[in-house]
Structures are given as structure tokens and as C-alpha cells.
Design a protein around this nucleic acid. Sequence first.
DNA 1: ACCTAAGGCTAACGACGTTAGCCGTCAAGT
DNA 2: ACTTGACGGCTAACGTCGTTAGCCTTAGGT
Lengths: 174, 174
Amino acid sequence: MPERSTTDRLTPRKREIVTEARALLEEHGAAALTMRALADRLGIKAPSLYKHFPDKAALELELVVLSLEETAEALEAASDSLPSLMNAYRTYALAHPHLYRLNTERSLPRGDLPEGLEARAAAPLVRVCGGDMNAARAAWAFAHGMVILQLNGRFPDDADLSAAWETGADAFEG
Amino acid sequence: MPERSTTDRLTPRKREIVTEARALLEEHGAAALTMRALADRLGIKAPSLYKHFPDKAALELELVVLSLEETAEALEAASDSLPSLMNAYRTYALAHPHLYRLNTERSLPRGDLPEGLEARAAAPLVRVCGGDMNAARAAWAFAHGMVILQLNGRFPDDADLSAAWETGADAFEG
DNA sequence: ACCTAAGGCTAACGACGTTAGCCGTCAAGT
DNA sequence: ACTTGACGGCTAACGTCGTTAGCCTTAGGT
């Protein structure tokens, strides 16, 4: 059951704005996500956006919520094994690189997140680790590291990243 | 032997500028690293900086070079074991969070880096992994993930991160 | 004596996030 | 039926950012 809080807590107009913001971000990257560009896409002027969101950060927060929800869904849909979870994480992140980056680069505004969302996104991995938080955090760090280093072009072009993922997944299964 | 290319390839004035840029970055964060603020610190005006660097990116590139060199030194100084390397990596990164972030958030401008620097920074880990590049990349991803997730406040405040580091280091030693 | 290169300067531009203040529309309350 | 107020647009403008154009001074080399 999706339970997409974005659908509940936002007025229809706000949701439209977030939707366009997401499209702009995913299509053209973070630098293109500008109040003016977003307004243009909506056929309005930039200052009008402030009738709906107090500032750009509040808008981005909704994108983070969205990204967290979708990550949670992707992990919940994966089967209950570490490799399967890793694969789901990797797949989602690489399918939405800009959204993923936006989500992970800033620090988490926990106070402004829907109740329980962070825990929900973490749950599948924690469960697979049998409740061992150290193992879960280490595995998460590995997965995030693999994704973000690839997105940031840190690995050589000819690196076999699937093999590296497998090596990591194996290591954490021992 | 350090072999700090920054000392060679930059004129004295450029080195002064990079030094102040680094101080500004490390003391007040990326948002404070402004051409005007940097110029102020040097007692000149912002446009004068362009006599020395074509743009801000070129200046930041020197900071990336510096950070890579120091990382290489830190890793070379560590003893030849995976936990020791991880510890050195973690320690350096957390001691220079803003520099580390600047280094890792953008994509590596390989063409503009001093010859062999990237390989030099990678060498200690590759050696400890017995030349297994998949293991080296997986271990690096884990270490970077741990560092950056902490820097970005993604772990709960009460998380025992040293324990998670140990779990990860153990996993990769198997 | 001259030329050049190095390294400053001021003025200004365009893009950004954001604020102030105005105005039309329309549903609800009296 | 008239008013009110919320909603959601608008223009004009501000301050900050990176950056460019163009001018000036100074030190060295020929």
C-alpha cells in the first residue's frame, strides 16, 4: 500500500508545482531547477510560486519526500535478500540520478518529514540484516557510495561496476 | 616524499590565493567561498582574481588537487592493512569536511589533474586488496558512503558509527 | 626611452532567490 | 444583494552571485 503522503498533505496546486519541479529536475538537472524556469513551465511568474511555498527549500523538501517514498516502495517491492535489496536500491537511484542526488546531498530535514517516513525507507534493509543496525548502516553506506561515486564520475569509464556491487554484496552476506 | 604538485605548477600569487580559498572553505563552508569574499580576504577586488584564474571552477580545481594529494599522503602514511587505511581515510575526511565534499561532489575533471595523481591516491587501497579492483572499489564505496552520509547528517544522532565502520571493515576482510 | 607583462581598479551585466505591494476572481457570510 | 476575505496571479525592485570590459600603474628587459 503506497501511502503517498505527498498526495494528502499538499493542495492540488502545490502538487502540480511539485510535479513540474520534479520534471524540470529530472530532465535538466539541479542547475536548471530555478524558480523562474519552474514558473515558466507552469505559465506563471516566479514570485507567484511564493504564494504556495515559503521558499525554494520548502519546494525541494517535497521532492526529497517524494524520493524517499519511492525508494521505500522500491525496497519494499524487492524480495527479502540483501542482493535483491541492493539491486533495487541501485536501480532506483540510477533511474533518477538528479532526484537521488537532491535527496542525499543536503542534510535530512527530519523535523519536516512525514512521521515515520525515514524509518519506513530504512525498514527493509534493517529487516534483512536481522535488526543488526551496524550491518544495515554499513551496507547502506556501501550502496550509497557505489551509486554516488558512479553518478559523480569517480570510477574509471571502463570499470566493471556490476562486479564491484557483487563483491560488496558478497562481503556483507558473510 | 610529498611531491606536492600545487607547489610547482602554480605561481606564488596563485598559491596565496588558493591558500586563502582553502581557509575560507574550511572555516565557513562552501557557501562562503565566494569570489568577493575571497578577494576581500586577500585585500583586493573580486575581478582581480580573474587575472590569476579563468573562473571559479579553475580555482576549485586546485582545491580538489590539494585534497587528493593530502588524501594520498594520509593513505600512504597508514600501515598496510584494510582497517588502518579505512581509519586514515575516515580521519582525513572528517578533519576536512568541506574540502572533502568539494572534492567528491563534483565529477572528477580527470583531464585537468596532474598526471598520475588519481592513481596515486588509489594505490594504497588497491595494494591492500591484492590488486582486486572490484574489492578496492567496493571498499572505497563503503568508506566514502560512511563519510558522506555522516557529513550529510543521514545517520541518527545516536548511531554508533565506529561500530558500523568496524562491521564494514570486517566484512571486506573476509 | 620605450614596450610589455603583471596585477590591480571601477562599472556594469545577467541570472539567481526573494520581498513588497497591487489587483482580479469567486465562494461564503450577513 | 453586498461585502469580505482567501486565493492566486502580477510588476518592480533588491541584494548577491559569477563574470566581462576596459582602464591604470608599476617593474623589467631591450
